[in-house]
């Protein structure tokens, strides 16, 4: 019996075997979708770049060299240098760490929040549902970017506040999904069985309801990543997110704005990084949705 047979066994002997088998099947399906593979490769590239930034970047992101300011792209500085003579490629490489930090923190804050709100609303129904979903709908029908801008204005500029503001605007979509998922199996027999065994509401929600919501949540979060990156970069561009000299991509574009007509590379190069990473998340999210959540495939 090969490892593949063991993974694809129709009657797995343990929970581990079942989970690994499921992961294997999904992985192979995903690999058959070329665009999803491209997306996954881009995201893997982002993670590796962030992890090995000091080894990839030829120079430090803060090293000024005023003699070589605003140099066009060349073999030494193949994305050129900015107004302080810093190597733009090195700054873009280090910027991947900031982007990765922003998207992970927003996901870690907003996904569990939305998950719990949605699961509690869907599980209990009645007035908790109406109250929680009312609040969710108010947030959902609000323009996200404007709301984030207003929150940052009140909290003060800075990358931490930008992350908080984006997370505040991101959770309602997850609450909607978690509620819809929970509603579909709220009255199913396995939930009644657990309840008869004397499990508390908290245990049912955390151990039996939430795990079933995770796959559609992963899809949604991946698809939302592109939007989160664009919002964070927009806040950086307006001077409300990461502050200089941090090599955040949006802030870098903002600095290059004054040179756009003569030294186009200063503003243009970080933009390519944003596009590449956002596109990677969109492609991967599309592929994941086809695998994990065929119901909503094709919609967005």
């Amino acid at each position: 019996m090969t490892a593949r047979d063991w993974l694809l066994d129709d009657s797995p002997a343990s929970r581990l075997q079942a989970n690994l088998g499921r992961a294997w099947r999904m992985g192979t399906t995903l690999l058959r979708n070329p665009l999803a593979v491209v997306g996954a490769a881009i995201i893997l590239g982002l993670i590796l770049t962030a992890a090995f930034a000091p080894w990839i970047a030829p120079e430090t992101p803060f090293g000024q060299d005023l003699a070589n300011r605003l140099q066009p792209p060349s073999p030494q500085h193949w994305m050129g240098t900015d107004e302080l003579g810093r190597d733009i490629f090195s700054r873009v490489v280090y910027g991947s760490r900031i982007t990765l930090m922003i998207v992970s923190l927003v996901a870690v804050i907003s996904a569990p929040l939305g998950l719990i709100v949605g699961a509690v609303a869907g599980y209990f129904g009645g007035w908790p549902d109406r109250l929680l979903m009312g609040v969710t709908d108010v947030f959902l029908s609000m323009p996200k970017l404007i709301l984030a801008l207003a929150f940052v204005a009140a909290l003060g500029p800075g990358i931490e506040n930008a992350i908080i503001a984006i997370a505040i605007t991101a959770w309602p979509a997850y609450a909607r999904i978690a509620r819809a998922e929970t509603m579909t199996f709220r009255n199913s027999e396995f939930i009644s069985a657990v309840r008869l065994l004397g499990a508390s509401h908290g245990r049912i929600i955390f151990r039996h309801v939430l795990p079933l919501c995770t796959s559609s949540m992963i899809v949604r979060v991946t698809l939302d990543m592109a939007g989160i990156i664009l919002t964070a970069a927009g806040l950086g561009f307006l001077g409300l997110g990461a502050q200089p000299p941090m090599p955040e991509w949006g802030a870098m574009i903002s600095r290059g704005r004054s040179f756009i007509l003569d030294q186009w590379w200063v503003a243009t190069m970080p933009g390519f990084a944003i596009i590449l990473v956002s596109l990677g998340f969109s492609l991967l999210g599309d592929g994941l949705r086809d695998v994990l959540d065929p119901k909503q495939a094709g919609e967005r």
């Binding site: 243009t268 944003i274 596009i275 956002s278």
Partner: peptide, 18 residues
């Protein structure tokens, strides 16, 4: 269409102007 979800609007504006 996917590019529309991935390009920052302010960047496209700057590049378009240039």
């Amino acid at each position: 269409a996917l590019l529309g979800y991935s390009i920052p609007a302010f960047w496209l504006g700057l590049v378009g102007l240039a």
